[in-house]
Measured scan of single mutants.
Amino acid sequence: SHFELRVGTITLHFDNISEELAEELEKLAKNGVHADEIRRWWEEWLK
């Protein structure tokens, strides 16, 4: 499923992401983690 995450002024787009993972990314964003860090985390997870 597709997921969009708003982090400050940036909107990150994720394809084929589980609800659980989407929730984890939302938690990171709410805790003030920068969009670049979240994207890096996601790319690492995909490997």
Score class of each variant (00 low, 15 high):
D36E: 11
G32W: 04
W45Y: 15
E4A: 00
N31Q: 14
E44P: 00
W41V: 14
W45V: 10
H34A: 12
E20N: 08
F14G: 01
E43P: 02
I38P: 01
A35F: 06
E20K: 12
F3E: 03
V33F: 12
I10W: 00
E19R: 11
G32K: 04
E44N: 14
K47R: 12
E43Y: 09
W42S: 06
F3I: 06
L25Y: 02
I38F: 07
G8E: 03
R39H: 09
E37D: 13
K30E: 11
F3V: 06
G32D: 06
D36I: 09
K27H: 10
A22K: 15
E4L: 03
H2T: 02
E23A: 14
E26N: 11
D36L: 09
E24M: 12
A22P: 01
E44V: 07
E4W: 03
E43F: 09
K30M: 13
V33Q: 12
W41D: 02
H2I: 06
T11N: 03
H2Q: 05
H2W: 10
L21Q: 11
L21R: 04
V7G: 00
K30G: 08
V7P: 00
L25R: 00
T11W: 04
H13Q: 08
F14K: 00
N31H: 15
E26R: 13
E26G: 13
W45N: 09
L5H: 00
W45F: 11
L46E: 10
R40Y: 08
A22H: 04
E37A: 12
I17F: 03
L28Y: 05
W41M: 12
V7S: 01
E20D: 12
I17W: 03
G32L: 08
G8N: 02
H2N: 09
L21N: 06
L46V: 13
R6M: 15
W42F: 15
E19Y: 12
R6K: 15
E4H: 05
L28E: 01
E37G: 11
E19T: 14
E19S: 13
W42G: 05
L12K: 00
E19M: 13
H13T: 10
L28K: 07
F3P: 02
A35Y: 07
W45Q: 10
L25C: 02
I10R: 02
E20R: 07
E37W: 07
N31G: 11
T9Y: 04
E43I: 08
T11S: 05
I10Q: 07
A29I: 04
E43D: 11
I38K: 01
K47Y: 08
W41A: 12
A22E: 10
F3H: 05
S1I: 15
K27G: 11
F14S: 01
R39A: 09
V33S: 12
E26D: 11
R39L: 15
G32Q: 05
H13G: 04
E26H: 15
H34P: 14
I38S: 02
K27T: 11
K30P: 03
E26K: 13
F14P: 00
T11M: 06
V7W: 05
I38H: 01
H34R: 11
E23L: 14
E24W: 13
K47P: 05
E19Q: 14
D15W: 13
E19F: 12
K27D: 10
G32T: 06
S1Q: 14
L12G: 00
I17K: 00
E20F: 08
I38N: 01
I17Q: 00
D36H: 11
L5T: 03
W41R: 13
E19A: 13
A35D: 03
E37S: 08
E26A: 12
W42E: 02
S1R: 09
T11V: 15
E4N: 01
A29R: 04
S1M: 15
V33H: 12
T9H: 12
T9P: 11
F14L: 03
I10G: 05
W45T: 09
G32H: 08
L21A: 10
L28S: 02
W42M: 11
E44D: 14
R40T: 09
E43H: 12
G8I: 04
H34I: 10
V33M: 15
A29Y: 03
N31V: 10
S18K: 03
K30L: 13
W41S: 07
I38W: 06
L5V: 14
E44I: 07
E20P: 07
L12R: 00
K27Y: 11
T11D: 03
D36Y: 02
R6A: 15
R6H: 15
E37Y: 08
V7M: 06
E19V: 14
L12N: 00
L25G: 00
S18M: 03
T9D: 15
E23R: 15
A29T: 06
W41N: 06
R40E: 11
A29E: 03
E44T: 07
E26T: 15
K47G: 10
L46P: 05
V7N: 01
L25N: 00
S18P: 09
I10F: 00
R40A: 13
H2S: 07
I17E: 01
A22D: 01
D15Y: 15
A35I: 10
E26W: 07
R39D: 05
W42T: 05
G8A: 02
E23Q: 15
T9R: 04
H2C: 08
E23S: 13
F3N: 02
I38V: 07
I17L: 05
K30I: 10
E4F: 02
E23H: 15
L25T: 00
H13A: 06
L5D: 02
R39V: 15
N16L: 05
E37F: 07
L5S: 01
K27Q: 13
D15C: 09
L25D: 00
I17N: 01
V7R: 00
E20L: 06
H34G: 15
E24D: 09
E43Q: 11
D36T: 08
H34W: 08
A29Q: 04
R40P: 01
H34T: 15
V7D: 03
E37T: 10
F14Q: 00
E4C: 02
E19H: 13
H2K: 04
E37N: 09
I38E: 01
S1Y: 05
V33G: 08
A29M: 05
F3R: 02
E19P: 14
D15H: 14
R39T: 13
S18N: 09
E23G: 14
G32I: 08
K30C: 06
L46G: 13
I17M: 05
A29V: 11
L25Q: 00
R40H: 12
V33K: 13
D15I: 08
S1H: 15
G8T: 06
H2M: 03
E37L: 10
E4Q: 03
L5K: 03
S18H: 05
K30A: 13
S18V: 04
N31W: 06
L46F: 10
R6N: 15
V33T: 11
H2G: 13
L28T: 02
L28G: 02
K30V: 10
W41K: 13
E43K: 07
E23P: 02
L46Q: 13
K27I: 09
F14A: 01
G8F: 05
H2Y: 07
E23M: 14
T11K: 03
L25M: 10
L46Y: 09
S1F: 12
A29H: 03
L46A: 10
L25E: 00
E19K: 15
T9K: 07
D36N: 10
T11G: 01
D15K: 06
F3G: 04
D15N: 08
E19D: 13
L12I: 08
L25K: 00
W41F: 14
E44S: 11
E44K: 07
W45C: 06
A29W: 04
N16F: 08
W45H: 11
V7T: 03
R40W: 10
W41L: 11
F14D: 00
N31C: 08
S18Q: 04
E20Y: 08
R6Y: 04
L21W: 05
E24K: 14
S1P: 15
L28H: 09
A35P: 14
W41E: 04
D15Q: 07
R40D: 09
D36W: 02
K27V: 09
E19G: 11
V7K: 00
K47A: 11
A35G: 06
F3S: 01
W41Q: 10
A22T: 05
H13F: 10
I17Y: 02
A29L: 05
R6G: 09
I10E: 14
I38M: 03
L25I: 07
L21S: 05
S18T: 14
A22Q: 15
E23W: 13
E43V: 08
F14Y: 02
R6E: 14
R40K: 13
V7I: 10
W41H: 13
H13D: 02
D15T: 09
K47T: 11
V33E: 10
H34F: 12
E19L: 14
K30T: 09
N16Q: 06
N31Y: 06
R39G: 08
E43S: 07
L21D: 06
F14M: 03
H13C: 08
L21G: 05
K47E: 10
S18W: 03
L25F: 08
I38R: 01
D36F: 04
T9L: 13
N31L: 12
F14R: 00
I10S: 05
K47I: 11
W41Y: 14
N16C: 04
E24T: 14
L46H: 09
D36S: 10
F14T: 00
I17D: 01
G8R: 01
F3M: 05
R39P: 02
S1W: 04
R6W: 04
L12C: 01
V7Q: 01
G8D: 07
E44R: 07
L21F: 07
A35C: 04
E4P: 02
L46M: 14
T9C: 12
T9Q: 12
L5M: 07
K27F: 09
W41G: 02
N16K: 03
G8V: 03
H13K: 06
E23T: 13
H34M: 11
E37Q: 11
D36V: 09
V33I: 12
G8P: 00
E20A: 12
L25H: 00
E37K: 07
D36A: 11
F14E: 00
H13L: 08
E26F: 09
